[in-house]
Simulated scan of single mutants.
Amino acid sequence: MQPETGGRPATSRRLILATRNDGKIRELHAILDAAGLDVELVGADAYPEIPDVKETGVTFAENALLKAHALAQATGHPAVADDSGLCVDVLGGAPGILSARWSGKHGDDQANLDLLLAQLADIADEHRAAHFACAAALALPDGTERVVEGTLEGTLRHTPTGTGGFGYDPILQPLGEDRTCAELTPDEKNAISHRGKAFRALVPVVRELLG
Rank of each mutant, 00 (worst) to 15 (best):
M1I: 13
P3F: 04
E4L: 15
E4C: 10
E4Y: 15
T5M: 07
A10F: 00
A10I: 04
N21H: 09
N21T: 08
D22P: 11
E27R: 10
E27M: 05
A30C: 00
A30E: 08
A30S: 04
D33G: 06
D33M: 06
A35E: 01
G36T: 00
G36K: 05
G36A: 01
L37W: 07
E40K: 02
L41S: 03
V42K: 06
D45E: 10
A46F: 03
Y47D: 00
P48F: 04
P48I: 11
E49M: 05
D52C: 01
D52T: 13
T56V: 11
G57D: 04
G57V: 11
T59P: 07
F60Q: 08
A61L: 03
A64Q: 10
L66Y: 13
L66Q: 14
L66D: 07
K67Q: 08
A68Y: 07
A70D: 13
L71G: 09
A72R: 12
G76N: 11
G76C: 11
A79D: 02
D82N: 05
D83G: 12
S84A: 14
S84M: 01
S84H: 02
C87S: 12
C87G: 00
G93F: 00
G93Q: 03
P95G: 03
P95Q: 07
G96M: 05
I97G: 02
W102K: 06
H106K: 14
D109T: 14
A111V: 05
L113D: 00
L116K: 04
A118T: 06
A118G: 12
L120S: 02
L120I: 03
A121V: 06
D122L: 07
A124Q: 07
A124C: 03
A124F: 03
E126I: 05
R128V: 10
A130H: 05
A130I: 12
H131R: 15
F132S: 02
L138S: 13
L138R: 13
L138W: 12
D142K: 12
D142E: 13
D142V: 12
T144I: 07
V148K: 08
T151Q: 12
L152N: 11
L156Q: 11
R157C: 07
R157F: 01
T161P: 00
T161N: 11
T163H: 11
G164S: 05
G164H: 13
F166Q: 07
G167Y: 02
Y168V: 08
Y168R: 10
D169S: 06
L172C: 01
L172R: 10
G176Q: 10
E177A: 03
R179M: 04
N190R: 14
N190K: 10
A191F: 12
A191P: 13
S193D: 01
S193Y: 11
R195P: 01
R195T: 08
A198T: 14
R200V: 10
R200Y: 05
L202I: 14
L202Q: 10
P204K: 15
R207F: 09
L209F: 15
L209G: 11
